[in-house]
């Protein structure tokens, strides 16, 4: 029994990256030695300033870029020898700009495109597409041309088209760019639901409010390296590292910092928590 449990623990790593280096053909070194393990069902935010290597890392996981050196294992198999189409069974990648993938004449066909490419059986195709559309709240626009939709809807179509392929890992590259607050909250709630259903979520962003609210683990990147890998509270308490990576903690964390001289602890992540901590500091519960 014990060896079985051990092998399960090893299997638990859905993505395993070891000393990954990547240099673009032009000579720019985008990744200089990244090592990272991501376990099944995790919700990981990858944060960092522009040009820190976030997207290059994600493209290496997807197999769109091939390591200059080092290894990327997806589900225990090296990405290096695999076709992108076979990696797509396990990893789904929602690109930053939905307009870079939409081309079909209806939303329904658009979402069908991925599973069709992967050769999923035709008999459950409709159920698959419908499930993806429902999870992104798109059933009402399923017959419309994708290009006639709003940016928020187009982004959700592009995410649904990835969900329909039913990958275990979902990579979201800046999913809330250009969305207003309500749209972005609705989208983040859908992503959280996918995570609670068992999907491994990798969120690439520089929106620290999203990170504070949703991520259970934060990987901070700077100049092609992982400089911090911790839970959100741990990351936000390390102000020096954050500033070095051109990031700013969310407003509520910054407020907690200012109040720390008055006895409020620094590891606060939400306004509700801050209110509670202030009340505790004032002795309201005594």
């Amino acid at each position: 029994m014990i060896p079985a449990a051990d092998s399960r623990a090893a299997d638990d790593k859905i993505i395993s990256i070891h000393d990954l280096k990547f240099i673009y053909p032009g000579g720019v070194q985008a990744l200089s030695g990244v090592s990272l393990d991501i376990r099944r069902g995790e919700y990981v935010a990858i944060v960092g300033g522009n040009g820190s290597g976030k997207t290059t890392l994600a493209k290496n996981i997807m197999g769109l870029l091939r390591p200059t050196s080092g290894t990327v294992l997806v589900n225990g198999t090296a990405v290096a020898g695999q076709r992108i189409a076979s990696i797509a069974h396990i990893v789904g990648y929602a690109f930053q700009n939905p307009d870079h993938q939409l081309f079909c004449s209806t939303v329904w066909e658009e979402v069908r495109f991925g599973p069709q490419n992967l050769g999923y059986p035709a008999d459950d195709m409709d159920a698959r597409v419908e499930h993806a559309l429902r999870s992104m709240d798109l059933m009402s626009v399923k017959a419309r041309p994708p290009f006639s939709l709003t940016l928020s809807e187009r982004r959700r179509v592009s995410i649904a088209s990835v969900i329909a392929m039913d990958p275990e890992v979902l990579i979201f590259d800046e999913p809330t760019t250009g969305l207003d607050m309500r749209e972005s909250e609705a989208l983040m709630a859908s992503i959280a639901r996918l995570n609670s259903e068992g999907k491994t979520v990798i969120l690439i962003t520089h929106d620290m409010k999203l990170v504070a609210k949703h991520a259970k683990r934060v990987v901070v990147m700077s100049e092609g390296k992982v400089i911090l890998d911790s839970d959100p509270a741990g990351v936000f308490s390390d102000l020096e590292v954050l500033l070095a990576s051109k990031l700013m903690p969310p407003p509520v964390v910054r407020l907690a910092y200012r109040l720390s001289t008055r006895g409020v602890p620094r590891d606060v992540l939400s306004p509700e928590e801050l209110v509670l901590r202030i009340m505790m500091a004032r002795g309201d519960f005594r």
Partner: peptide, 16 residues
């Protein structure tokens, strides 16, 4: 660059 990015997006959807 746009064409490369579009090709990447479709490859990620299993297009060969």
């Amino acid at each position: 660059a746009t064409v490369e990015s579009i090709k990447d997006a479709q490859r990620a959807r299993g297009m060969e």
